[in-house]
Every structure is written in structure tokens, then in C-alpha cells.
Design a binder for these strands. Structure first.
Lengths: 114, 114
DNA sequence: ACGATACTAAAGCATATGCTTAACCAACCA
DNA sequence: TGGTTGGTTAAGCATATGCTTTAGTATCGT
């Protein structure tokens, strides 16, 4: 990642860490403050902040500060982006298997009717 | 990732790199040898091998060597694993929005009929 | 047997990642 | 006004990541 990483890079990278996935799992159930996010996690607050920064830079999470509390919420659109990339590959893969199957069927029929 | 990383960690981590995603994109179109995989990539063969090792350790790719050529193919089941995790979060998120909407609707109706 | 092909193994290196601790600041609240 | 709460910044450190180059080791074709 010497060049500036793409949104997809950042999103998968963000999801690659179990702590960050736990934060996402919490946030899909509704918005939360930083300390609410940190509460179940066995690490220091600054560590949680750094994970939050990764999530925000990927676009998976947005947050705004009002008074002294920062409220975080997920952005489902960004979740879709990652999901779509995988889905498209699976589709490509499946359609290739389909074509392969049809081809083999053709060969078989040609063998039956000489 | 001090503990041994989970399959999901490894899979998202594998997908977080553009070179490795390019390799996956190649492999969904059919099996390929290591040098076929390396051909469009602007890096040394050993580098490609290391990316391949990451993909294999995640389970996204399997490979077998016959003679002197190693043939690689994707494992779509592992792709599904990652896709399902994301999908489940999006579903949770959507269903929460649903409940929220219904609740707001209830409030509105209560306001209309006193 | 001999060279070319296809991969592999090992070492080194620069940068990135995932923490920590130690301040620090800006609301709140009594 | 002064303490507590909620968050932030900075520095430091151990390990991981993404390459490179160099030096192999098995095939395969002639």
C-alpha cells in the first residue's frame, strides 16, 4: 500500500480486525458513544479511538461530536460496497461453472449421437 | 492479531490488498498457474508467491502442484463466508431501521387520534 | 546430459499496525 | 470554582506486512 489505498482496500482492511468487527456489530444495533463502544473491549480508550479512526477512514463509520460526547453510527452503504465486490466475484465464478457444465453436456450429447 | 487469527480475520485481510484481489479476479475466471497469475502483476515472482500464501492461508485459494507447475483455483465457499458476515450485519441494521420506522409511525398515529 | 522453465527458500529492509502510557483539554455539575 | 467525565494527542515500542535480491531445486524438452 505505497500508493493511496482505495476505498475497497480500506474497507476490507477495517473489517480484518476482530475488535473493529465487534465495534461494527455493536453499531448496527444503533449509534453509540466512544466510551460505550470501548466498554466491552479489553483495551485502553486510545486504542479504541485508533480503531475508530480506521473505521472512519474506510467510510464504514461516521461520527459527530456534540458537547463532549462523540456519537458513532455505521454507514451501511460502505458495507454494501465490500459485499458487492465479493458477490460479483462469486457470480462470475458461478457463471463460469455454468458454461463449463453446458460445454461438458454438449460433448456428452455429441458422443451419444454420432 | 497476537492470538491466532480467525478464518474471518484471514479472509478480510487477504481481500484488503489490491494485488490479491486482482489474483482472485483472475482465478474466478478459471484455474491458473503461479506464473500465469504473476504475468499481469508488476512485481517479482517471490512477491506473488507470498501473496498466494496469504490467499491460501485464508482458504480463499487452494493449489496443487503437478510436475513443476502449481495450479491455483479459488474456493468460493470461503468467499461466501466473508459475504455472509457483511450481509448479516446489513440485515441487522436494516431490521433495526424497520423497527425504528414502525415506532415513529406509532407515535405519529397516536398524535393524530387523541 | 544440458539448458531452459517453473517454482521455492532465505535473508534483508522499509513501512505499517496495534497496542501502551503519560499528559492534556473541554464540557458538565455541584 | 474545582472536580469528574468523555475524549484527544503524542510518543514509544514490538510485531507484522510487502516487497526486494540472491541462491537454490526440481522438472521438462532436445
Amino acid at each position: 500500500m505505497l500508493n493511496q489505498p482505495s476505498p475497497l482496500d480500506l474497507t476490507f482492511q477495517a473489517l480484518a480486525d476482530p475488535t473493529r468487527r465487534a465495534m461494527v456489530e455493536r453499531l448496527v444495533r444503533g449509534p453509540a458513544s466512544v466510551s460505550e463502544l470501548a466498554q466491552p473491549l479489553e483495551m485502553s480508550l486510545p486504542a479504541v479511538m485508533q480503531h475508530l479512526a480506521v473505521l472512519e477512514s474506510s467510510g464504514l463509520v461516521r461520527s459527530e461530536k456534540v458537547g463532549r460526547v462523540r456519537t458513532c453510527r455505521i454507514d451501511a452503504a460502505q458495507l454494501s460496497l465490500a459485499e458487492q465486490w465479493i458477490n460479483q466475484r462469486r457470480m462470475e465464478w458461478a457463471s463460469r461453472l455454468d458454461r463449463l457444465g453446458q460445454y461438458l453436456e454438449t460433448l456428452k450429447n455429441q458422443g451419444e449421437e454420432p
